[in-house]
């Protein structure tokens, strides 16, 4: 077995004991240690690390902006450290799809801890031209690790602009890149790879709420 992140062998020195007990590992010890899980107090809405566990200034602004924040809360797994940045760049920009396997058990256990089966799972769609280039949607790759039914026919993407190239101000004021293609259910769980400003998720949540969704939460691999 080779580590899905660094390609080095994940096999510990094999003895009969390890051979019988441990199942094949997806990630080596070195990489495991590099993965920066979020710990300590965080904002209860967006999971940004804070020192007092109170709602962060950004989330206060969102509440003001929408009167009622359409995103109930976000749960993330990892911080966006330089190591995580390079892993994500290999995953998304180089297109090394199988890196997602390394996060499988973490994704599953976090989902079980924080979310319920009553929520309809929707991965944030990728623009078709991007999808064509990358040959996969990273949000869908995460969703597939849950082995749960999910929906790709409720939310669609319309905008061509590259979100990551815009400034924060431009992102917030830009037109909503999503459209609704089918009436949304009551409880929704949005999935994306990374929460940066929270704009993308709120644009989707806002639209879904306007079309009748009662509660929208999100699960992202990374809180930047």
């Amino acid at each position: 077995m080779n580590c899905y992140i660094c390609q080095n062998s994940t096999e510990p020195d094999t003895t009969w004991a390890t051979f019988l007990v441990t199942k094949s590992r997806l990630i080596c010890d070195d990489c495991e240690q590099l993965l920066p899980t979020i710990s300590g107090p965080t904002c209860p809405i967006c999971m940004k690390p804070t020192h007092d566990a109170k709602k962060c200034p950004d989330c206060h602004k969102w509440s003001e902006h929408f009167t009622k924040d359409p995103l109930k809360r976000n749960i993330s797994l990892y911080r966006y450290t330089p190591e995580m940045k390079s892993i994500m760049s290999r995953f998304k920009y180089r297109g090394d799809y199988e890196i997602i396997h390394a996060f499988e058990s973490a994704i599953q256990s976090t989902y079980k801890t924080h979310f319920s089966d009553h929520q309809t799972i929707i991965p944030i769609p990728l623009h078709p031209s991007r999808q064509q280039q990358r040959l996969f949607n990273q949000a869908e790759a995460i969703v597939q690790k849950l082995y749960q039914p999910y929906h790709t026919n409720i939310l669609a993407r319309q905008d061509n602009a590259k979100q990551s190239k815009k400034s924060r101000y431009e992102r917030i004021t830009s037109l909503n890149p999503f459209t609704i293609t089918e009436n949304p259910p009551d409880k929704i769980l949005l999935i994306d790879d990374i929460y940066t400003t929270g704009t993308t998720l709120r644009q989707a949540a806002d639209l879904l709420t306007n079309y009748g969704a009662k509660s929208v939460e999100s699960f992202t691999l990374i809180r930047s």
């Binding site: 077995m1 080779n2 390609q7 799809y97 199988e98 040959l135 996969f136």
Partner: peptide, 9 residues
């Protein structure tokens, strides 16, 4: 073989 990956398609 271990240096090839698979993307669902």
């Amino acid at each position: 073989p271990s240096y090839f990956g698979k993307i669902p398609h």
